[in-house]
Simulated assay, not measured.
Amino acid sequence: MIALAGIVFTFIMVFGGYLLAGGKMGIILKSLPFEIMIIGGAAVGAFAVGNTFESLKQTCKDTLKVFRGSHWKAEDYDQLLKLLFQLISIARKSPVALEEHIDKPSESSIFSQFSKIQNDAAALDIICDTLRSASMNYDDPMQVEELLDKKIDETKHHREHSVHGLQSVADGLPALGIVAAVLGVIKTMGSIDQPPEVLGKLIGGALVGTFLGVFLAYCLVAPFAIKLKATVDDDINFYRTIKEVLVSHMHQHPPKICLEVARQNIPHHFRPDFSELDEALKNLKTHA
């Protein structure tokens, strides 16, 4: 919602200020469709040249995250800690009993309590592979932490592809605006024999290209890239929380200590309250 409000505010301030200063919208509106075609078409075409069709679709899909925000919310961190508490508690008591949950998480009675996590392939991959490796005595905390860092960094790199794509478009838009403006000047020079009032409108139309390229770059696309990167970082923090719990588990800390270490590393705007989480874990333990 804040992103949409920011866009509306930007348009009101820019064009409202222009109108209050005595500007005329007629020239802008008349030139806008053609300038959008030149600048937008060139931007999309250049992006397509440097990327695959799948990347183009993924970028369009990821752009919606600017308005939706992070995939993981505060309540999801709370659910994650409850899930991991149950899993590592079972792992301490009976590693054999854990196998039915990590081998087939889609059929697990524990994972089924947390459907959002159960449906996330990256989260399942980290949780199940790590616990499965630990059951096979691959439980060196330092090696496990290094392996998880590499896996999370790979996921982060893949998800930031859309960020880099949008940023590259933002970097190129001012230059594409100049391309549109130059074409407008060429058009104007072809009508050099026209009276000043006609030439004035043609030159004004040409300058719309320069304005549009800069406006789109710095008021829309670049902020989209910044917001998308922040959203990706928030999503990746969810997987880092999983890593913190599992590495602490490898160090043979008690389950509640494992969760507290992870909880302290969760970003403050997502971090569950200690007392509420502790009470929830007691209830889980009672019904286990």
Rank of each mutant, 00 (worst) to 15 (best):
M1D: 06
I2T: 13
V14C: 12
F15L: 14
F15V: 08
F15K: 04
G17A: 11
Y18W: 05
L19Q: 08
L19F: 07
L19E: 04
L20F: 08
G22Q: 09
K24S: 15
K24W: 00
G26C: 01
K30T: 10
S31T: 09
L32H: 01
P33D: 06
F34E: 13
E35W: 00
E35D: 11
I38W: 00
I39H: 01
G40L: 06
A43F: 00
A46Y: 04
A48E: 01
A48M: 11
V49T: 07
E54F: 02
S55I: 00
L56D: 03
K57W: 06
Q58V: 05
Q58G: 03
T59D: 07
D62C: 03
V66D: 07
S70G: 05
S70H: 00
S70F: 00
H71R: 11
W72M: 11
A74E: 14
D76C: 07
D76E: 15
Y77L: 07
D78I: 01
L80T: 07
L81T: 01
K82M: 14
F85I: 02
L87P: 07
L87Y: 03
I88A: 13
I90L: 14
A91L: 09
P95L: 13
P95V: 10
E99I: 14
D103Q: 13
S106Q: 15
S108Y: 05
S112C: 13
K116R: 12
I117N: 04
Q118E: 09
N119Q: 15
A121V: 11
A122Q: 10
I127N: 08
I127H: 03
T130Y: 07
A134H: 05
N137P: 00
Y138L: 15
D139T: 06
Q143I: 06
Q143F: 07
E146D: 14
L147P: 00
I152T: 03
T155S: 13
T155R: 12
H158V: 14
E160C: 08
V169G: 07
G172F: 01
A175Y: 04
G177C: 11
I178L: 15
V179N: 02
V179M: 09
V182A: 09
G184D: 08
G184P: 02
P196I: 13
E197S: 10
L199H: 01
K201Q: 14
G205W: 03
L207T: 09
F211C: 12
F215L: 14
F215Y: 10
Y218P: 05
Y218A: 12
A222Y: 10
T231L: 09
D235E: 12
N237Y: 04
N237S: 09
F238H: 06
F238V: 06
R240H: 14
K243H: 04
E244F: 06
L246Y: 02
S248R: 08
M250T: 11
H251R: 14
Q252T: 11
Q252F: 13
H253R: 14
K256N: 12
E260T: 05
E260P: 02
A262N: 04
A262Y: 02
N265H: 12
I266V: 15
I266N: 11
H269W: 06
F274C: 04
E276D: 10
L277W: 02
D278T: 05
D278R: 01
E279H: 03
L281H: 01
N283Q: 09
H287Y: 14
